[in-house]
């Protein structure tokens, strides 16, 4: 149970960063931390104590294995996060070109 709570604490660290940080790069990193916490949680969901990795190889007898589905989900969500991060970074570079700052409170041409 502790391990799930620690996972949730990591998630909250990311959420805190997104909500309070003013630097665009720190916001992007915080979103990454939230994603890692969720991925970690997904891997823990599939864990069974005493089980081995879920790959069948030659000459090995069948043993209890951990759940492979969450691992597949984590791989997919890592790929998606890679895309999100690349997109956010490119937007951050473009914003720096236009506004010459990474401070989110100074990037306020839209309001109302």
């Amino acid at each position: 149970m502790t391990i799930y709570l620690l996972c949730f604490a990591l998630f909250l660290v990311g959420l805190y960063g997104v909500l309070t940080k003013r630097d665009i790069v720190k916001i992007i990193l915080s979103i990454g931390i939230m994603g890692y916490a969720t991925n970690l949680f997904l891997v823990f969901v599939g864990y069974k104590s005493g089980a081995i990795y879920p790959i069948l190889s030659e000459g090995k007898c069948i043993q209890p294995m951990v759940d492979p589905l969450p691992q597949a989900l984590v791989l997919t969500s890592i790929v998606i996060e890679l895309g999100t991060t690349a997109l956010l970074v490119s937007l951050a570079i473009k914003l720096f070109q236009k506004y010459s700052t990474f401070d989110i409170t100074k990037i306020r041409r839209l309001s109302g």
Binding site: L82, S90, I93, Q97
Partner: peptide
Amino acid sequence: SLFLVVWLLAGINPEEED
């Protein structure tokens, strides 16, 4: 596509405005 993504990101000069 991963190579092209990093290539393009490295190609942007943040100082100059296109």
